[in-house]
């Protein structure tokens, strides 16, 4: 056993990368759920984004274009969910699961000709002397631009929900759609926008996996990240800042357990592999216990049909 081999600076730097796809997908899903819609199809939208982004980046040579198309791809798939749940009033849980099944299938179909290819590299943001700072430089100022984009997105969503009128309306729709409707807000339209945003974010998260974190295309490569993102939203009790916390905690334990293994810590491997999930549950229980009531948006998963 050689714990000194673990460099905490590098550990933190890599957990930021590991957490980025989850942050992106989770912050999008948070907005969706804030509007009162539960979309369990995050995994399907992520994998679709992963292949759309990968394909476009490979064809065009531009990762930026890839990410843009990944967002669009995710949003398009999300609109399918939107159409079904908002217009045709289907059950959200079932539709979300069907979306995951469909997304996994369709992405594998699209991806058949992209196997075994390396994508163009996503550039590391050049921060000049900042990157050379001891400790802080490596942790904070040495990443690719998507890491900062994800962080900025969390800040934007937080500010949007907290300070803007649009955020207030969104939350109103999620807390009581009948009342929001009575006040003249277009509940369905607002929710569709939220769903599209959620899809776009999930698409970005997926593309981050296929373009930066792995980077290559393989069938089913998101490997459950979408489900983790869903869990992180609940874990964060629907607060943007806590999404960051949750994703870093999860990403951190995932990276740490591999580091502990590599350093030869004599803890059974299966216990280490389970630890990210078990610790997430434990922290969740600690955070929810003692607090009264439920912080979930009141209309989460409920159907809305304007009868007049």
């Amino acid at each position: 056993m050689n714990l000194s081999a673990i460099d905490p600076v590098l550990l933190i730097a890599s957990l930021m990368v590991a957490a980025t796809p989850i942050i992106l997908a989770a912050i999008g899903e948070l907005v969706v759920e804030k509007s009162g819609v539960l979309n369990l199809g995050v995994e399907g939208m992520m994998i679709t984004g992963a292949i759309c982004g990968f394909g476009v980046a490979v064809e065009s040579g531009s990762p930026v274009l890839g990410f843009a198309l990944a967002a669009i791809g995710g949003a398009v798939l999300a609109m399918l969910f939107g159409l079904l749940t908002q217009v045709l009033l289907s059950n959200q849980v079932a539709t979300g699961l069907a979306l995951t099944l469909f997304g996994l299938g369709i992405s594998a179909l699209i991806g058949q000709s992209y196997r075994g290819i390396s994508p163009p590299a996503t550039t590391r943001l050049d921060m000049g002397p900042l990157s050379d700072l001891p400790v802080i430089g490596r942790i904070l100022f040495s990443h690719d631009w998507m890491v900062y984009f994800a962080l900025a997105l969390v800040a934007v969503v937080w500010a949007f929900l907290k300070f803007t009128r649009g955020g207030l309306i969104l939350r109103a729709v999620g807390e009581n759609h009948e009342a929001a409707h009575a006040l003249g807000y277009k509940v369905v339209r607002i929710r569709l926008m939220a769903i599209a945003f959620g899809g776009a974010c999930a698409g970005l998260g997926g593309a981050y996996i296929s373009l930066v974190r792995v980077p290559q295309w393989t069938d089913g490569m998101t490997a459950g990240a979408g489900w983790i993102a869903l869990a992180i939203v609940v874990f964060a009790s629907w607060r943007a800042g806590r999404v960051l916390l949750g994703a870093y905690l999860f990403g951190g334990i995932t990276v740490l357990q591999l580091n502990l293994q590599a350093a030869g810590v004599p803890v059974p491997v299966e216990v280490l592999s389970m630890s990210p999930y078990l610790i997430t549950i434990a922290v969740l229980v600690l955070m929810t216990s003692g607090r009264r009531g439920n912080s979930a948006p009141a209309m989460l998963g409920r159907l809305f049909h304007a009868s007049s």
Binding site: I6, D7, Q216, M221, A225, V255, L258, N259
Partner: peptide
Amino acid sequence: FDPAKEADAAKALIEQG
């Protein structure tokens, strides 16, 4: 076969020298 996990494992090993 889990590209993300394999990538993380490789990074952990590399970071430890």
